[in-house]
Amino acid sequence: MFAFITSRILQAIPVLLVVGFIAFALFAYVGDPVTIMLGQDYTAAQREELVRALGLDQPFIVQYAKFVWAAVHGNFGLSYRLARPVSQLILERLPATIELAVTAAALALLVGVPMGVYTGIRRNSPTSRLFMVFSLIGVSLPTFLIGILLILFFAVLLGWLPSFGRGDVVHLSHWTTGLLTVSGLKALILPAITLGMFQMTLIMRLVRSEMLEVLRSDYIKFARARGLSERSINFGHALKNTLVPVITIVGLQLGGLVAFSIVTETVFQWPGMGLLLVQSIGVADIPVMSAYLLLVAVLFVAINLIVDLLYYAVDPRLRLDRRSMTGGK
């Protein structure tokens, strides 16, 4: 187990180094931050002062070393657009994105898995067909269109839910949460559905097809022959064995959740990291872009690691394989 984790972490390091280098190259060579920050009118002395302040007058190696050293300490320099530390900007917006993504993922799992089980067991019932049509729409409609449609119905026509922002938030030292106020919870509903929709339909289809596969297998027939209850067969035996591919896809899709939070946050003007990124790209705010890139890389590497570990926990065969493999050598 320990050897496994270590080797996975060692594999992740080159990935992070490559992404780090791209992030630095962006940071160092793209655009002219000095002109952007100074605006229209400036003197040569002002310009020189800013170049020195940003450390742009130093050689490549020094800048790279400084960049890595600073990044490891969570320091990504100043945003060109807002002239504030990037780490501070990101930390302010991190809670909003995490709350949105986690709610969306929970929604996708809590709705998607039961729907998948239901359509798998009663594959020809009218409800199942309805679910399947619904899932086709969920897979084909782009995220932003789902958001716009939800806003049109629930905010514009019915006026039940807010269409933008986070509502009232509560400050808990460094963390701001919208989960403790009524307006915060109401504001969370539409964005979470928008973001979770694709994952939800994906999970539903996956669980369904896996259930169909598993229910045909011999050990299910055997379980029936032993006279186990339907409930125990469906959930204790069948669902459990569908979980390995579901975990893979859900894990890998967490990355997609982060990526599409950018879109959802733009539609709903949700004050998270994704909205920050889009606003930064619009004006070529490189420090924010490179910090985001690094952060996302770390996040994805971590997700992949966790998915691998979950395999281990769910599928005992993997543990056996590894033991026999290493034992055989």
């Binding site: 793209v30 950018i262 990124l277 890139l293 994805f300 590497v301």
Partner: peptide
Amino acid sequence: DVQLTFPAILIALLVDGVVRAV
């Protein structure tokens, strides 16, 4: 493999952003 770890839309967004800056 490394690129496949990242969703395509995110890569397109960042590439577009870099070209925009250059």
